[in-house]
């Protein structure tokens, strides 16, 4: 598929850190079709550790998570060398400007507000994943 640049043999892995089952389901469907291999982390408490253990190629991070907020997870990710460069796309349903500012300040690579357009999520995630190679 168009999203996968370095060979169909090794689809890129994306972590979905999201607690709403239906949104997870939708994202999984969309990203799978776009050539990604999504896996789910359902709460904020363990998210940073699990991402550091086995860093994926990108992560979609919700802000309002049970246990630990998305911002805290992001801070932990950036503090850990294993995930410091992990491309992170943040999603939030709160839709407030200060959330976007905070997310970008904490080191999120991109930021989107729910509800989102399926195509746009795929496009942005692809852009993020390409960026490190451009460097």
């Amino acid at each position: 598929m168009m999203g996968v640049q370095d060979g169909p043999d090794r689809p890129r892995r994306v972590a979905l850190v999201e607690d709403e089952p239906n949104i997870r389901e939708a994202l999984r469907f969309i990203l799978s079709r776009a050539g990604w291999r999504p896996f789910v982390i359902g709460d904020g408490a363990t998210a940073a550790e699990r991402l550091a253990e086995d860093p994926p190629d990108a992560a979609i991070l919700d802000v309002m998570l049970p246990g630990r907020s998305g911002f805290d997870v992001l801070r932990a990710l950036r503090a850990d060398p294993a995930t410091a460069a992990l491309p992170v796309l943040m999603l939030t349903a709160r839709g407030q400007d200060k959330d976007r500012a905070l997310a970008l300040a904490l080191g999120a690579d991109d930021f989107m507000t729910k509800p989102f357009s399926n195509a746009e999520v795929v496009e942005r995630l692809d852009t993020l994943a390409r960026a490190p190679q451009a460097n």
């Binding site: 239906n22 949104i23 939708a26 839709g95 989102f116």
Partner: peptide, 11 residues
């Protein structure tokens, strides 16, 4: 409000 709307729009 946005959470169910997100699911609805995505599906």
């Amino acid at each position: 409000l946005r959470t169910p709307m997100t699911s609805i729009r995505a599906f």
